[in-house]
Amino acid sequence: MTDYRDVNRAAWDDRAAAHAASPDYKFQRFTDPDHLSPVVRFDQPLLGDISGLRGVHLQCHIGTDTVSLARLGATMTGLDFSPKSLDEARRLAELAGQDVRFVQSDVYDAVSAVGDGYDVVYTGIGALCWLPDIRRWARTVAALLRPGGRLFIREGHPVLWALDYDRTDGLLVLQEPYFETEKPQIYEDEGSYATTDVAFTHNTTHEWNHGLGEIVTAVLEAGMTLTGLVEHTTVPWEALRGGQMTEVQENEWQLADRPVRLPHTYTLQAAKPS
């Protein structure tokens, strides 16, 4: 069986340069020393002051959030398994004038790749769906953190990931698995979530959903203490097409019709005991 990492890495490598050139990621705005990615700007109230902290951003892709966290005063390391994505991340850091270390590694091998003792492990939108084992992920996070360090993650809600995205009648229908499955969901998609007219070659991905209870349980079983769990009614991309969503602030979308029907994203925080 083809390793899911090889399949997914090929898809991300194929899209890295197109994402960096997309108006959605706004690379040129990072020449402004005060610019932060919309994702990190949304996270700031819950993230709090991270100046002087040592952080690692898992599955950092092309580095917009990693660079933004560095601008908030943290000493940041970004980790991703896609070398093409990291090429763009390093280019962005240079453009932004930020000293950020980027390391290529599978997330499960993060400790051997970047070491441990971090104050903050940060994981952003659209990361967990590429991982087959949420418990192994949580153990990796715990091993990266120093005693007293914390996990911060904002992620697409598993209910959102489970929806039928092909419907055009405006109904919210659960179609995909909500819980983690042994075998991946295999998708074919010639495009990208980012605005681009590039034609891609590698269009197969292997993905997994993880229920909210599974994620919380994994964090607790890894020895961390849950310190926050907030569900949000916005998501930082137009998750449902066909006019079903409206942009309510920069890069934050929600259902146009009765958005309180759907948990769009969540922020989870946890701490490793001192």
Rank of each mutant, 00 (worst) to 15 (best):
M1C: 13
D3I: 13
Y4H: 11
Y4P: 10
V7S: 01
D14Y: 04
H19K: 13
A21R: 07
S22V: 09
P23H: 08
D24A: 09
K26V: 00
K26P: 01
K26F: 00
Q28I: 02
Q28E: 09
H35K: 13
S37Y: 05
V40T: 10
R41W: 11
F42K: 00
P45T: 09
L46A: 09
G48R: 11
G52V: 03
G52K: 06
V56P: 11
V56R: 05
V56I: 15
Q59P: 09
I62H: 05
G63A: 12
G63I: 05
T64C: 09
D65V: 08
T66A: 14
T66F: 06
S68Q: 00
L69Y: 12
R71A: 08
T75Q: 05
M76G: 03
T77D: 10
F81Y: 13
S82C: 12
S82P: 05
K84Q: 03
D87G: 00
A89D: 04
R91C: 11
L92Q: 02
E94T: 07
L95I: 13
Q98L: 00
V103T: 11
V103A: 15
V107L: 10
V107Q: 06
A110S: 11
S112Q: 13
S112N: 08
S112R: 05
G117V: 11
G117L: 11
G117P: 15
Y118N: 01
Y118S: 08
V121Q: 11
Y122I: 02
W130P: 06
W130T: 04
P132V: 03
P132H: 11
W137Q: 05
R139S: 06
T140G: 12
V141L: 10
V141N: 08
L144M: 04
L144T: 04
R146E: 15
P147S: 02
R150D: 05
F152Q: 00
P158Q: 09
P158D: 06
V159A: 09
L163Y: 12
Y165H: 13
T168A: 09
D169F: 03
G170Y: 09
G170T: 04
L172H: 14
L172S: 10
E176D: 05
Y178S: 07
E182T: 15
K183T: 10
Y187E: 09
T195S: 15
T196E: 00
T196R: 10
D197P: 02
V198F: 04
T201Y: 02
T205G: 10
N209E: 00
N209T: 12
H210D: 07
G211S: 14
G213V: 08
G213Q: 12
E214P: 04
A218W: 07
L220Q: 14
E221S: 08
A222K: 01
G223F: 13
M224N: 00
V230C: 02
H232A: 06
T234E: 00
T234N: 01
W237R: 02
L240S: 14
R241K: 12
G242Q: 03
T246C: 01
T246R: 07
V248E: 15
E250G: 05
W253S: 00
D257L: 05
P259F: 09
V260M: 08
R261H: 06
R261T: 01
L262M: 12
P263D: 02
P263T: 05
P263C: 06
S274V: 15
